[in-house]
Amino acid sequence: MSEAALKPQDLMVEMRGVNKWYGDFHVLRDIDFEVKRGERIVICGPSGSGKSTMIRCINHLEEHQQGEIVVGGVPLTQDVKRIEQVRRSVGMVFQHFNLFPHLSVLENCCIAPMWVQKKPRREAEAQAMKYLERVRIAEQAKKYPGQLSGGQQQRVAIARSLCMHPDVMLFDEPTSALDPEMIKEVLDVMIELANEGMTMLCVTHEMGFAKTVADRVIFMDQGQIIEENAPEPFFNNPQSERTQLFLSQILGH
């Protein structure tokens, strides 16, 4: 899968003693956690629990203040070159898609391969079409993001990330901004991706997705990892009280 901008390694993401504050507010507290190549991890928790912040630290969209984050063997420091190196091999899908509205769907998928990886236009376009076909949206390639539905935009965003051949994909609540009837089309693409062996970290409340594909489920609350387990025991036999409460609230209706 990967074009190995990072060294091939078993540990894709390592976080050791990571702490982060927004001003006085302690958002991430002593986060320790690691992701192996090919692992699929779902992160859940109540809003404000720091789950988005945590995965945004992995590609340094958020800066951590204490501790160590190593992605594919590259430690994240202030060094801009290293940050950019990590970002080239870590794909990210956002809650609000964040497609580039001034570029067509095809250009959205070509711009980074052409300008960051210096691929020739024809090669970048051919590859973009391949991934757009994979997310079943190739026929919309000439349209602009504003002309697509939310589900279609999110699938384009996934294709845009895949065009960089990432080693890890981060999903930050990819279905939260979607109308209910569009959630499935996005989840289906994500499940396919998981089945192909992509290393994935998903912040999501889609527990069905977690049960289907996750190797591990992580529950966060108040900036801490409260519980971490395989989906079957996580859902059937949650250990902590807070996890039980959260699961009863989210699965209860």
Binding site: E84, R87, R88, V90
Partner: peptide, 21 residues
Amino acid sequence: PKGQEEAAAALGMTYWKRMGL
């Protein structure tokens, strides 16, 4: 929106590419 720059950054673009493109 801030998400535009974030998306560009997440694709590995440098500051000048994020701004210029």
